[in-house]
């Protein structure tokens, strides 16, 4: 749940989502769910010359499983807190094997 928790804090920030089909989309993160499905607004393909059909698309829903990377704004990430959150995640008794 750490990633879900993390992405929730990025709502409203501009992110670039790189998909497994090499399409990279920059947009404002509007929502994310526990499957890390992503909704973007005001989107723009990073390489619009290669994907002209994306010009007309203004917002999109991205299934979590097709995401390869998400480029984050560094200023919106609290790395120290992220470390703590990871520690807490690791500490949870059920996390050892199952959770």
């Amino acid at each position: 749940m750490l990633f879900y928790s993390f992405f929730k804090t990025l709502i409203g920030q501009q992110v670039t989502v790189e998909l497994k089909n090499d399409l990279a989309i920059t947009g404002i993160l509007t929502s994310v769910d526990q499957f890390l499905n992503i909704k973007l607004d005001e989107i723009r393909a990073v390489d619009d010359a290669k994907y002209p059909h994306m010009m007309a698309v203004k917002n999109c829903f991205i299934r979590g499983s097709v995401v390869r990377y998400v480029q984050l704004p560094a200023s919106a990430v609290d790395t120290a807190l992220l470390q703590d959150a990871a520690r807490r995640e690791a500490q949870q008794p059920t996390t050892g094997g199952a959770h």
Binding site: S5, T9, L81, L82, D84, A85
Partner: peptide, 21 residues
């Protein structure tokens, strides 16, 4: 029910503390 938790600090620590900060 997938998301609900009795201890937000355990499961949703980053979000909780981040927004608090």
């Amino acid at each position: 029910s997938q998301l609900v938790t009795d201890d937000p600090y355990a499961d949703d620590f980053y979000y909780q503390v981040y927004t608090a900060i």
